[in-house]
Design a protein around this nucleic acid. Structure first.
Lengths: 163, 163
DNA sequence: TACAATTAGGACCAATTAAGTCCTCTTTAC
DNA sequence: GTAAAGAGGACTTAATTGGTCCTAATTGTA
């Protein structure tokens, strides 16, 4: 559905919370602050730690902290830490796993489109996410606006309800 | 998983096939050409017709044709015809359906990010998709490259295997 | 040394979603 | 009238996700 999983969403919220803390925080603590189910938060934090985005400390007074400055952590990194490589279609990552690959003219193009989307996400840092209504993100969104009207404005798509 | 559904994928392939045909084609015919399961192709074509992207003709010698020139059909339109509005997160579309909305600082930013991704997809037309290794898409991908290195290059993310 | 607080690493189950089939009805050319 | 085709949807199965829980391994402190 072109949607991030809920865990990934939690991941960004947790990372945002961490970016706003100055000391190490336990999973329980983070979950409470961010208003998330504790077990889910734990799971996400483990993924983030494995990906090297947060540093964990075990034992009493243990917890998590960002492994590097928020400005140096991209949204892409968070997404990929939790749900693996961004791949809009099967073929945008794995070659040869799609049965229609031979006859499909779209493959090389999906590769490129995937890259474009990935780069868009790549240009948003955790620091941006952590500042509400970030001017930088707004500026980015503007940068992605079409240089000249390419086609029918997407808003004009008529989509009937299916119910 | 930030992945398009298989049906959507089929949709782009079918539309690509249609863009390369000059006459009306039946669902069976299209499925055969594109090497797709017939029933799935039928389902997708119905969605595309409902969204007004293809024109259908019933009865003997009926079939489907593009409703407008391929250059005027965006990838976004195809995606949304099949799986509904693009929404990376719950909150990027519906307000008030997310329980942590109050405490969540990320919401307004997700809105913007969603828009950026949508615009990226919006700038790819069916005509681009239909030309293999489209120069226009490649150019687009280049346009999305960061103006100055923002953060750690995403390729450097170390991601341990989970197995 | 024992204990309590924490993370690590999974296993497990329920709920949701996606994918693939199938059925019946309507429309249209011959 | 019949065959070819789309419209609309129901249904089934498989895959994925979300949420829980359990058992180590670590580490500070009484």
């Amino acid at each position: 559905m072109l949607r991030l999983s809920k865990l990934t969403d939690y991941g960004t919220v947790i990372m945002t919370t961490l970016a706003q803390s100055d000391s190490r925080r336990s999973a329980t603590d983070l979950a409470a602050t961010a208003n998330l189910p504790v077990d889910a938060a734990r799971k996400v934090l483990k993924d983030l730690a494995r990906a090297g985005l947060v540093q964990s400390e075990r034992g009493a007074h243990g917890g998590y902290a960002l492994a590097r400055p928020a400005a140096n952590i991209s949204v892409t990194a968070i997404i990929e830490a939790i749900e693996g490589p961004i791949a809009l279609t099967e073929c945008s990552i794995h070659d040869h796993r799609c049965e229609i690959e031979q006859s499909c003219g779209a493959r090389s193009n999906w590769h490129l489109i995937n890259r474009a989307v990935r780069m868009a996400l790549d240009q948003v840092s955790l620091a941006d996410m952590a500042s509400p209504g970030s001017g930088r993100i707004a500026a980015l969104a503007r940068r992605f606006a079409p240089p000249a009207p390419v086609s029918v404005p997407a808003d004009s798509i008529q989509r009937m309800t299916r119910a």
